[in-house]
């Protein structure tokens, strides 16, 4: 092999290696933020106690053990799982729709979930075989999945047209919001407050079962996403090229939207419509990993987990003694970050 030939591979490998190092740094950062999140809260449990209690639960007093294992760990873990799910769903949606502002939420998943939650709160229906406390997440999940189903139907009917899908998603958002507003009209003040609280999103209601479900959802879907990383990368070269290679774009689009709808539905049904993670995490990941989806896809999941975990920490640490709903923080922090990223992207283009 000539020296020049070695050079391209070397230079390319060097870039890839730097990105892998970044991914490791990101993972380490995630662990640090996760521990920080665990250490924050009304009860005085220091970082040392936390680490000790994680490896040797018996070393903590009963009260501290319960706080750590039954309160803080589920909250902190669901932040990771929801963040990862939203980051993953966001990056795939953005690529498949070739739209940096897209996220599963822009396709209506979260608005539908809010509508489902409103139905549960206002009508308080009882569903056989579903315990009362599970009705709200169940309906939120059902509505979110149903909206994903509608979007998939449109993908099918429009033979995978991007514009149609995005427009339909926007229409779905408006429709769900209008119906939710209808529920506001007829609901008691307390129910409205509950709906609003749920809409903002907060992590403190999660238990181990919820954590397990969201993690399972991510664990089942991630391998399918990873199988598509080459296709998603080459799709960034434009649809015309992908089509000329005989790649079935409509099918790819269907699979991605199916995946991200399910991810987003599971992510929001327990913790509410936490905004901006699905939008910001992919952009952060792109800054670190570029457009090579081999790293971008897992990277966006890591970024989502990191951002939501950090937001969860801040929600407890910012005002001592008060837990700010985490959705407020993701929006307050997410909007400026997003504007900054878009501004940078524009300047570079």
């Amino acid at each position: 092999m000539s020296e020049r030939e070695a050079t391209l591979l070397n230079r390319f490998t060097r870039i890839k290696r730097r990105r892998v190092h970044l991914a490791f740094a990101l993972a380490l950062g995630l662990i640090a933020v996760f521990l920080l999140d665990l250490s924050a809260g009304p009860a005085a449990l220091g970082l040392g106690d936390i680490v000790r209690g994680l490896f040797d639960p018996g070393s903590l007093e009963l009260r501290d053990r319960i706080i750590l294992w039954d309160v803080r760990l589920p909250d902190a873990l669901i932040a990771l799982a929801v963040g990862a799910a939203l980051g993953l769903a966001g990056v795939e949606t953005q690529t498949i729709l070739d739209n940096p502002l897209a996220s599963p939420f822009t396709l209506g998943v979260s608005s539908a979930a809010v509508l489902g939650a409103s139905v549960a709160i206002v009508l308080a229906p009882s569903i056989p075989a579903v315990p009362d406390h599970a009705i709200l997440p169940a309906l939120a999940l059902l509505f979110a999945l149903a909206s994903g189903g509608f979007v998939l139907l449109v993908v099918r009917v429009s033979e995978g047209s991007r514009e149609t899908v995005v427009l339909f998603g926007i229409a779905l958002v408006f429709l769900c919001n209008a119906l939710t507003a209808g529920f506001h009209m007829v609901a008691e003040a307390e129910a409205v407050q509950q709906i609003v609280f749920w809409t903002i999103g907060n992590l403190t209601k999660a238990g181990w079962a919820e954590v397990a479900m969201v993690f399972a959802c991510v664990a089942v879907i991630l391998p399918f996403s990873l199988r598509h990383v080459w296709l998603l990368t080459l799709l960034r070269g434009g649809e015309a090229h992908a089509r000329s290679m005989g790649i079935d774009i409509a099918r790819l689009r269907t699979m991605v939207i199916l995946r991200s709808s399910v991810l987003a539905a599971f992510a929001v049904c327990f913790v509410g419509a936490i905004g901006f993670i699905g939008l910001v995490a992919p952009h952060l990941a792109r800054l670190m990993f570029g457009e090579d989806h081999r790293l971008l896809v897992p990277g966006a999941a890591l970024c989502g987990a990191l951002v939501l975990s950090a937001a969860s920490y801040l929600s407890k640490a910012l005002v001592p003694g008060i837990i700010i709903p985490v959705g407020i923080l993701t929006a307050v922090v997410g909007v400026p970050v997003l504007l900054l990223l878009l501004w940078r992207a524009r300047r570079r283009a």
Binding site: F12, T233, R236, G237, M245, E291
Partner: peptide
């Protein structure tokens, strides 16, 4: 090919 942040080498490679 679309003017994305992808590098020509990455596009060739992924193809």
């Amino acid at each position: 090919p679309a003017p994305s942040a992808l590098m020509p080498t990455e596009l060739m490679w992924s193809t």
